[in-house]
Design a protein around this nucleic acid. Structure first.
Lengths: 298, 298
DNA sequence: AGATAATATCTAAATATCAGATAGATTAGC
DNA sequence: GCTAATCTATCTGATATTTAGATATTATCT
């Protein structure tokens, strides 16, 4: 049975060009390396070194097999590194739930660094609809979440605001409200409003936001965006979701007659202590909590 | 020191869901598997199995590490397969020299099959100029060659004809000879002929073929092809080289007034016994010798 | 030719591995 | 609820492997 020690001796001898030197590098006796190589040669039935000179030189077969041998050792080192990572408390999987519309470019950078620092962690990213992050955490489906702040913070979670998302009233280019310089409550009431509402909780976010008489709901701001584009109504959406469409003119921003400034809704990082975070989760959480507050409002 | 046996026990136990079953599969005692797994767990500092039930079940860490462990074993199996291949006389490298213009699609198919049958052989393909294959074989640079038949077979080589290449007289579209229905020796003598000649041997192939008074030489039929396209002269080239250009009309075929049929020059497979072929070379040689004779003349 | 350094091989000791037996624990069937 | 079957952990003695040290031989350099 060939062993990793034999392969190690083989590779070290090939690298050093000498069994004695290989033994010194491996802190073993010269005879150990010599016999290891010989036994490997016997096991696989191939002469790896040419012993006619003072120092052994690789045969053609040895040169070819050296690559395969290195590959085995590298594989084993990766296994040990993986094990070491797990042993030091790094979780094997990490699931992040980022509410739709809250995923920014700066998150990609953080995840990139996460992948480099914790190469053995499998990362999964969910993009649930509005206000569904808490249920994913409760189920244990996700480890860390990011979501728009809600009025009623569910119990058993940690929340920490990391910024504000500018909520912008918009409608499609061809919508009747698109031409108005200012709109009143009455104007809004006469047209269909599209609102975000959670699938699971079923609760309307903030009743005060419900200004339209006729309201349709979706859990996804992107679905609402599509509906807006076909002129189906008006809505209040995070600026990050609509900014590109405002730029191209597909969407038009509404100006309230009764309110001058945009509503700024908080963005929360959410986690739970029930599911303990591993090292990678801890690191990610700290990174998220250190995000600049203005990221979502630009 | 973790070993392959431990990893094997780990994987087998994970597959079977039981240490006893794993032991049966590995034809070892149950205690061997049990201690191997425990020692592995101690070595890497990770609990791989949850032992509460009657049979052990993988922990999350175990599930993650299982993939890495499998990877190590697979790597090792590949090493053993590679070694077995070398041990059974399969060479590690195989160099084939195919004279320019003699490389056909059917050769690709053969090489494809070669790669499947002998996955550990590194294949190199040279495309030397006319009549340079023997010197590559003599230097030991190539193992098997394929070339146009020469009058003076160099000594110390094995030659075997495997077909005929149709030699076609051609000139460029705008060449003065292009318009003639038939050309005489005299016509040819008044225009520059481009001939293939070996770099190393320096000998002109067959003096009888030299019909032009002014002759330029190149070792490569493709260089000659380029010169023909710019109207620099006329030449006799293998049909496989010029057929595409004849089809598009960039080249024009010459009709001899003094000779009706095309010259059919033999195509030889060449090898030498000095450099013994391995199993892959043997196989390839047999495949080449079995090629259909008509392949090059179409 | 002599000095140096490297390899192969032998031996004894340390080490690791293995099979068998046994005890404790869990599950399936009645 | 009880019994039988099956599984795991652990102990023990035997076996196999690995190792270091010593030594003979060979190749290389001066």
């Amino acid at each position: 049975m060939s062993s990793l020690d034999q392969l190690q001796a083989f590779v070290a001898a090939a690298d050093e060009g000498s069994f004695s030197a290989a033994a010194r590098r491996l802190r073993k006796a010269q005879s150990a390396v010599s016999t290891a190589v010989i036994n490997l040669e016997i096991d696989v039935g191939v002469e790896l070194f040419d012993r006619t000179g003072r120092t052994p030189s690789l045969t053609a077969a040895g040169t070819a097999l050296l690559r395969s041998a290195r590959s085995v050792l590298k594989s084993n080192q990766e296994f040990l590194a993986h094990a070491s990572s797990v042993s030091e408390g790094v979780e094997t999987q990490l699931c992040i739930a980022v509410e739709q519309g809250m995923f920014l470019h700066s998150l990609t950078d953080i995840l990139l660094e996460l992948g480099e620092r914790f190469p053995f962690v499998e990362v999964e990213i969910l993009d649930p609809g509005i206000n569904d992050v808490p249920s994913l955490l409760k189920e244990g489906r996700a480890d860390i979440g990011m979501m728009l702040e809600q009025e009623d913070h569910p119990q058993g979670f940690h929340f920490r605001g990391v910024g504000y998302s500018r909520m912008v009233p918009v409608c499609g280019r061809d919508h009747p409200l698109a031409g108005r310089s200012r709109v009143s409550h009455g104007d809004l009431r006469h047209h269909r409003q599209l609102m975000m509402r959670s699938r699971t909780q079923g609760a309307v976010g903030d009743p005060r936001d419900q200004k339209g008489a006729k309201v349709w709901f979706s859990e996804s701001p992107y679905v609402i965006l599509e509906l807006l584009l076909s002129g189906l109504g008006w809505a209040v959406l995070p600026k990050t979701v609509v900014s590109e469409r405002l730029r191209t003119g597909d969407l038009v921003r509404l100006r309230y007659g009764f309110q001058e400034t945009d509503v700024m809704q908080g963005v929360d990082v959410v986690w739970t202590e029930r599911r303990a975070l591993g090292s990678a989760g801890q690191w990610l959480l700290n990174k998220l909590l250190a995000l600049k507050p203005g990221l979502w409002s630009d």
